[in-house]
Design a protein around this nucleic acid. Structure first.
Lengths: 355, 355
DNA sequence: CTGAAAGCGCTTACAG
DNA sequence: CTGAAAGCGCTTACAG
């Protein structure tokens, strides 16, 4: 390792001190504005001039200073992104979708996370980002159910992926209602007398939508609505719910508000020798990559997070480029119900306790 | 929804047109420089002046223009981050660690992804980011085994989390060697005659390190070294390897280069009625959140991605703040071997094919 | 503790 | 097709 930095640091490519537009202009024998035109791909430069400037840029390793460019032009080539707990599957896949779509449009993404999805935190994060020189802002899953008023910088185009802010901001969200309905109906069609629900946190708007739709679907079918169990999205909370499922032989079908809780639940049932799907059918939500490889493979509602990310970018850049402010509108990305092996036709459970 | 935008858009907080430092100075009756000092928290402002300026800033909803600030001061308050396939567990957890640590230091993160971790792609991404006005650059897992020369902008502090660039750039990485050794030794200690290996892609440097260490550990113990199987990190490739494991009764212990492949492998073995760990012990690498909730719970090597992210930020900001260029150094984050239920003492497998 | 002047590096009008 | 001038909004020296 000590042999590494041996040769003097004259790197092969760009020169050591950062070249400015004036340096390039001097070397090429033109005015700075001409360099600017070449750097920005303007048509109105003679081919030989362009070539001379290009050669000078290459020789000096010129890279335009984006701060200066942004200061003058008012456009930054960057989209701000506020996220919460971004290592979670849905979040990270959405971020990936945003970053890929942004790159395709020539934008980078400025990322800030919040420790809690409260409107204060989100507002502070947005403000920090707007200081960072961004053209538009995407907020991923503020998730709060209180329709918070975000005190965002004026004139900053904003798009959110949280349905709780619908009507107030432009939004992109999954069609949770259709997905939930398909999941619950699937279990009813298999003959289960009713469907139990392991819910997400009560302050999460997607969790609330899923719970309400589960309840409405049962009611529409004239089935009893059991009290839902309260989870918090984590594998651990699904695991803990397993004890209650195992203990109650009336429970033969469980709709979980996400795949992680379904995975935790299934593991708990395995440990207690309750057969899935022989005795209890389990359905998840999200279709995380591992869902297909759980044991048994999980029946779930697929969300297309990548497309949500791409739609968010499309919407925010539409607003960045559009002259006038557009009315808040809403794009709903379809979900897809995926039947695998964690659900089976109803059979009554043997009420005897096991060990 | 049509009732939403009813009240005229005089938002309660900031005024409609963006206020500059001159506007604030005029309102507060001070010079622009004084506003600058207040905005930057300088000590040398009298409390009453500060208060007057603060009031004016609040009234006008003033937010400093970061482009102008950056242009003048040469500091941008942003760290560039190049990532590949960032929705994967290790990547997204590392990104989260980076973003959290950066926020704690008052920095935002400018994120760009590459479609392939080649040196050309990474170089192009770094160049795009350097145009974006960043103070330093973090490259997550370039992953290539060819010690590529990245043509990075001069004077830009760079830290990578790829051990293949060690000695060339400052780096943070997991202690893969210790983790792998612990995993293989654990299986040998359980009495298995040898340990098979489901490897990661050959062009990935962590995959190569894990494979080499697996081989060295077997050799050091005087055990035969079976030909490794080739995977590609995906659940699917683990699942496919399952057919070979099931078909060969000599295989009683498999060290997988990551948890996803281990999960795919275990599902395949379940389907073929090969008992885990009764007949085949399985070990993974990474300790993804679901690992503990797989069936059976997966024995694996825990990597602390969050800490890797934090160390990356510490190192790059050290270089941003330091006057002189420091010699490339290397931080190795410890791994931790976690024994769960997918491994068991050796028993010979029944060679007969089943049902 | 406060300020007048200069300039960071670029691009927007305006000329020619 | 090319350029001289002005200025985007801030902060760095330098005074006082």
């Amino acid at each position: 390792m000590s042999t590494a930095g041996h040769t003097p640091s004259t790197s092969p490519g760009p020169s050591a001190s950062r070249a400015s537009i004036a340096d390039v202009a001097r070397l090429a024998g033109v005015a700075p504005i001409t360099v600017s035109r070449v750097a920005n791909g303007s048509d109105s430069v003679r081919p030989d001039t362009r070539q001379r400037v290009q050669a000078a840029m290459d020789k000096l390793g010129y890279a335009p200073n984006n701060a200066a460019r942004a200061l003058r032009s008012g456009s930054f080539g960057a989209i701000g992104l506020v996220a919460h707990r971004l290592a979670r599957t849905g979040e990270s896949r959405t971020v990936e979708g945003v970053v890929e779509a942004a790159r395709a449009q020539g934008y980078t993404v400025s990322l800030v996370d919040v420790t809690a999805p409260t409107s204060d935190e989100v507002t502070a994060a947005a403000r920090r980002l707007s200081h960072q020189a961004i053209d538009g802002l995407i907020i991923i899953r503020a998730e709060t159910t209180t329709p918070a008023i975000l005190a965002l910088p004026p004139r900053l185009p904003v798009v959110v992926s949280d349905s709780s802010l619908l009507g107030r901001h432009a939004a992109v969200s999954s069609d949770q209602v259709a997905g939930t309905r398909a999941a619950v109906q699937h279990l009813l069609d298999l003959g289960h007398p009713t469907v139990h629900h392991l819910a997400g946190p009560a302050d999460s708007s997607p969790a609330v939508v899923r719970q309400e739709t589960w309840r409405d679907t049962l009611r529409a079918a004239g089935r009893p609505v059991p009290a839902p169990w309260q989870g918090d999205w984590t594998l651990q909370s699904g695991y803990e719910a397993g004890a209650r499922v195992a203990a109650d032989p009336e429970v033969t079908a469980v709709f979980c508000a996400n795949d992680e809780m379904a995975a935790g639940l299934m593991r708990s049932l395995h440990e207690q020798d309750v057969a899935v799907p022989g005795e209890v059918s389990v359905v998840g939500f999200d279709d995380i990559p591992v869902a297909e490889y759980l044991w048994p493979p999980l029946t779930t509602v697929h969300q297309d997070f990548g497309r949500i990310g791409a739609e968010l970018v499309t919407m925010v850049l539409d607003r960045v480029r559009g002259e006038r402010e557009q009315p808040p509108h809403h794009v709903e990305v379809p979900t897809r119900f995926v039947v695998r092996a964690s659900t089976a036709p109803y059979t009554p459970r043997t009420p005897a306790p096991r060990h």
